[in-house]
């Protein structure tokens, strides 16, 4: 039971990291808390579903279109909405949340609810690992999360665009003096964040089904992980995903399923009380030291 719980906790960790990584990337670079993130995740899932089931497009083509479409949408949101209110945190939150709300409510309004709205699994095979059955989809999630995090590290440390991302994240004004276009990088960060949301949906949605309500859950989970880890810190996201992922599964197994949510919320509360910037966040570090 312990090994099984640990394996499923690792998978839960991967799911949480996948859900949060796009949100975190956008915030870490452009400073924009994209509250439309959950809706963009769901939008990608519905788009893939629609292209496969209504337009009969091949799976890979549908996925490519959805990911690219999401990226374009992210860039458009930045160009036509966020650019004008950049730096006004409350306005950014209200604007992006409004966009997210509109997307999710539109799906509800047009009746896109039901159990048939789901995405196909990559393979329906299951494997026995250390005496525990685990399906291929979950193994794929864990593998993809690891590859994605490593890929992001390579991207931000060894590519010119990635280095520009880090430059903006560290000090936007200094980055500007080096000729880095902060608006272009900002648009790119929202765009890539939206693309990552689509990829997360592609891997996670086949475990359940697509519903507008799921968009709010994804946003809340991404926020929780990012707040615990420290907004903008990729290492923090990974660490927080481990904490919440393990806390949820071990609570479920050894304490009781109805305590799962309470333990997660308690983890957020404790971390914020001890370290208001989050585990690896630097936002209020100076104030905390003083």
């Amino acid at each position: 039971m312990f090994i099984g719980t640990t394996l499923y906790a690792l998978i839960n960790t991967s799911i949480l990291a996948l859900m949060a990584i796009g949100f975190n990337l956008t915030f870490g670079i452009s400073g924009v808390a994209n509250f439309a993130y959950g809706a963009i995740y769901i939008l990608a899932a519905y788009c893939i579903w629609g292209m496969i089931n209504l337009l009969q497009l091949p799976y890979l083509l549908a996925v490519a279109i959805a990911v690219l479409g999401n990226m374009v949408l992210g860039a458009l949101i930045y160009r036509f909405v966020l650019l004008r209110i950049r730096g006004q945190a409350l306005s950014e939150v209200i604007a992006t949340f409004g966009i997210g709300l509109a997307i999710l409510e539109l799906f509800s309004y047009f009746g896109w609810v039901g159990f048939e709205y789901t995405l196909p699994v990559f393979s329906d095979r299951s494997f026995i690992i250390a005496g525990t059955y685990i399906d291929f989809q979950r193994i794929a999630i864990a593998g993809f999360a690891a590859v994605l995090i490593f890929g992001l590290w390579i991207f931000t440390h060894h590519t010119s665009v990635g280095l520009a991302f880090r430059g903006i994240a560290q000090d936007e004004r200094t980055a500007l003096t080096f000729g880095i276009d902060s608006d272009r990088i900002g648009a790119l960060s929202v765009s890539i964040g939206a693309g990552l949301a689509a990829l997360a949906a592609l891997f996670i949605i086949p475990l359940g089904s697509i519903s507008p309500g799921e968009g709010y859950d994804v946003l809340i989970k991404a926020l929780a992980v990012c707040i615990i880890g420290g907004l903008g810190s990729t290492g923090g996201v990974v660490l927080a995903s481990f904490i919440v992922g393990f806390a949820e599964r071990f609570t479920d197994t050894y304490i009781g399923s109805h305590w799962t949510m309470i333990v997660s919320l308690a983890a957020i509360l404790i971390v914020l009380t001890v370290k208001p910037s989050g585990l690896l966040g630097k936002q209020k570090e100076l104030e905390e030291r003083i």
Partner: peptide, 16 residues
């Protein structure tokens, strides 16, 4: 087991 609305992972109970 009693699950809060919105729960989507039931692996622990199924192992039990």
């Amino acid at each position: 087991e009693a699950y809060p609305t919105g729960t989507s992972d039931f692996s622990s109970a199924l192992m039990k």
